[in-house]
Design a protein around this nucleic acid. Structure first.
Lengths: 203, 203
DNA sequence: ATATATAGTAGACTGCTGTACCTTTATTAA
DNA sequence: TTAATAAAGGTACAGCAGTCTACTATATAT
């Protein structure tokens, strides 16, 4: 179906993989899941749409969850830029961008989180390729705030990042709205805690 | 298998339900899931262990998730007592008790959260029968802290509760440890935010 | 050319959830 | 006693993910 006719000296023997299959599967998975939802899309549908046998999918990914994760990773990982605004504004922009993306991809993300609960190997993949990388963006914003003196040196960045992500995961997983009101209330409480943290525990 | 021989005037006609089937299914579901994990336990295994046909399970619950939720609801809902300690201590005890329970039930809870992502009807059940009731306990502790003057009247209880639960959901779902260190760091940051909240936004 | 190795397609297979159906059993109503 | 009703058990079914196998196609190595 493709033409991998490169002379290619140092390659293993055997028929080479069709270079078009993976992109076709990723595209098919992404658009089908966006249109019908993760549960309503079968691997057979994805393979048919990509014009490929189902086995070809399983030769490239361990399962449906890994394929769909790859299919959505790009679009979810594009708001990584850390600007030079005050950290609270940086966090606000992070959430605004994220929540806009989640209106389209939220259903897929929820299903991937669900898949990670039922498959330990996929949990590890999801954790390292998605969750930890997302968390790192927020940690970078907070570390920069500490370096610039916006936050005290003792600020607990690790826990703040967990609370930050946990808060909207919780609302996402319970089907509660992720809107601007929530952003402001979350930022207000979290930033108050981060700024006040050192002189705490006095009572 | 039982003997529901009550004369029972006002009852609908037809064979009465076996009163022992539901408890037997709940017991079987709970112990099997604790022993083997949610995914490894099939409805057939549960029914066999309960000494009942699989169809009898589906006559009482819409599906596996609802049954297992009922099977674990009791043990997870028993730390509701609100004492009269300072609110931070109340929250600490809440988390300590919860994390102890989660060492046994955490796998089941994770699978139930996962099921709720794939089944809108079960999400609603899980939300109202589990998540909102758990959240209400924490809200009650915080409301009491406001009433007693421990926290300012403007404290954002709703958002604090979301961050509180979100934080350990996040760690639970990512397979990260839920230990005493995490409890102290979570409480410190959250309580600092709640106490400092009113005079925030000054910068 | 020939052997070897691997990808591709197609279909069968297992075990799962949830549903449908059939027959038997226990109860109420007439 | 008989009819109606609904639960119980058991089997079959559809649709799914993931595995396996047989056969074909395409590359490298000799």
């Amino acid at each position: 179906m493709a033409m991998p006719k490169q002379p290619a000296s140092n390659r293993s023997p055997g028929r080479p993989r069709d270079a078009g299959a993976a992109p076709a599967l990723l595209d098919a998975a992404r658009s089908l899941v966006i249109e019908h939802g993760y549960e309503a899309v079968s691997t057979q549908m994805i393979a048919d749409t990509a014009g490929v046998a189902r086995q070809t999918l399983y030769r490239r990914w361990p399962g449906k969850a890994e394929l769909v994760l790859d299919a959505f990773l790009q679009s979810v990982m594009q708001d990584e830029a850390v600007g030079d605004q005050p950290f609270e504004e940086e966090l606000r922009r992070f959430l605004q961008h994220l929540f806009r993306n989640l209106r389209r991809d939220g259903g897929a993300i929820r299903s991937l989180i669900a898949s990670a609960q039922r498959d330990a190997a996929f949990l590890e993949t999801f954790r390292t390729r998605f969750a930890l990388r997302r968390a790192e963006i927020v940690k970078a914003i907070l570390r920069r705030a500490v370096a610039s003196g916006e936050l005290p040196a003792e600020a607990d960045i690790e826990t703040a990042t967990t609370m930050f992500h946990g808060a909207f995961w919780y609302r996402l997983l319970l089907g509660q709205p992720l809107d601007d009101v929530f952003i402001e209330r979350l930022l207000r409480l979290l930033c108050a805690g981060l700024r006040a943290e050192p002189e705490t525990l006095q009572r």
